[in-house]
Design a protein around this nucleic acid. Structure first.
Lengths: 238, 238
DNA sequence: GCAGAAGCCGAGTGAATACTCAGGTTCAAG
DNA sequence: CTTGAACCTGAGTATTCACTCGGCTTCTGC
């Protein structure tokens, strides 16, 4: 279900810096580019990267392949530009989450971040498959890896501030586990109907907190002494 | 990096039951089929599903495309047959793990299962990408989903026997989370160098156990009372 | 209002690749 | 040994799809 990109890759490997083949000067073409990206986002999410042919994207965006290739050097650049939009948006999202406040405990922090990511993915259905390696093209894989690296860095920073006693490699390992944990469970929840989704989000929080308690138990944490166990299961929508 | 299968899909949808177009009668052809599958496994793992063209698989297996298509109706059938081999092997693996013994605690059970899966994936490098939706073809996706469902069922059965007080839907949710958790972290560990891999495997066990303690705390579990916290991090290879 | 730049179009090109088929070879049963 | 079935072969077919290019239209600065 996919066709190899032409990929003659002229020996002079492109610097990969420019996503656009040419900068649009007129408002008309800028809007066109936006429409193409929006359409690509929708089609990638609905029918997948391979089935969304460049011709189809162009037609659905109300333009022609010629125009598409006027600005995007190839199909991957399209997906790459999309990934950049997502990455930037998620970056902005992080700014709104106060992470480095001294008093924030994991119990507060984790639901905050998980909830924000959940909301973002719900608003941008195309982001999940794009950022999670569902598409095999190298540029896409690297876009997903970029996001994940950014996540790991941020988690690592938070842990570092709260637990300066941990060795850096151990912190990194723990951060990678948490990032992957959250990523995969968020993807899973994304495939669920809304009512199960809410329950799932809560499980993600529990998983992260549980893992944290298990690997780097907080000496001051006396909440889980086994004495106040609820023993019954709350929050389960039939 | 891939081409859409011809997929004229004759209106009479194949029953999908037969993976082989024809049953081999002679030893020669049986060996040939095995060689083709082995080669496909290796190529899929090394260069990916798309880049591993049917022609290449045939040549590498020391045969011709004609012979390949004599037995396999299409490329997906190849991957599907491979997935079946893996699924059967993992099924056999489970038989060797005594799961329903009355006295087995999660602390014993989890490392046993995780360790077994880790060993399996290490022995079969092709299994990881194949069974984890890295390939987008529908047949492969369903093969991966099959494995995951089997996992969930088994986990659910174990939880049911230990915690009959939990409601079935809650049990299912917890089982799904655990299965996904283990799957994704095992995939992650699969991409790591060996020395990090071992540490990662241990983290998987901690994540599962931590999540379990967090969602369905065992009333008899007094190990984690916050009093015997090690406070230092053990088992961290540099 | 004009010249040239920027933008737009879509039929067509080229290359890739899943799969076929006509004809040859090897086996096994009688 | 013979005959037919099973098996094998690989050049060729059909199709798809990313991408180009020559010609047209719209904009903008002067």
């Amino acid at each position: 279900m996919a066709v190899v990109a032409r990929r003659p890759k002229p020996a002079t490997a492109a610097p990969s810096a420019t996503l656009l083949r040419r900068q649009p000067r007129q408002a008309r073409s800028q809007e066109r580019i936006e429409r193409i990206l929006d359409t690509a986002e929708q089609l990638f999410a609905e029918i997948g990267y391979d089935a969304a042919t460049t011709n189809l994207i162009a037609v659905e965006a109300g333009t022609s392949i010629g125009s598409l290739y006027e600005f995007f050097p190839n199909k991957e650049a399209l997906a790459s530009a999309l990934a950049d939009r997502y990455l930037a948006a998620i970056g902005r999202l992080y700014e709104t989450l106060i992470v480095d406040e001294p008093g924030v405990t994991p119990e507060v922090m984790v639901p905050r971040v998980v909830g924000a990511l959940d909301a973002f993915y719900r608003d941008h259905p195309g982001a999940v498959p794009l950022l999670n390696g569902r598409f095999t093209s190298p540029e896409l894989a690297s876009a997903g890896a970029n996001l994940q690296r950014a996540m790991v860095r941020r988690i690592d920073a938070v842990i570092a501030s709260r637990r300066p006693d941990l060795s850096p490699p151990r912190r990194l390992l723990v951060s990678e586990v948490i990032a992957e944990l959250a990523r995969s469970l968020l993807v899973l929840s994304d495939q669920m109907p809304l009512h199960q989704r809410k329950a799932m989000i809560h499980q993600i929080e529990l998983a992260v907190l549980g893992y944290l308690r298990e690997t780097i138990p907080d000496p001051e944490d006396h909440l889980h002494t086994g004495l106040d166990c609820p023993t019954v299961d709350a929050n389960m929508p039939s």
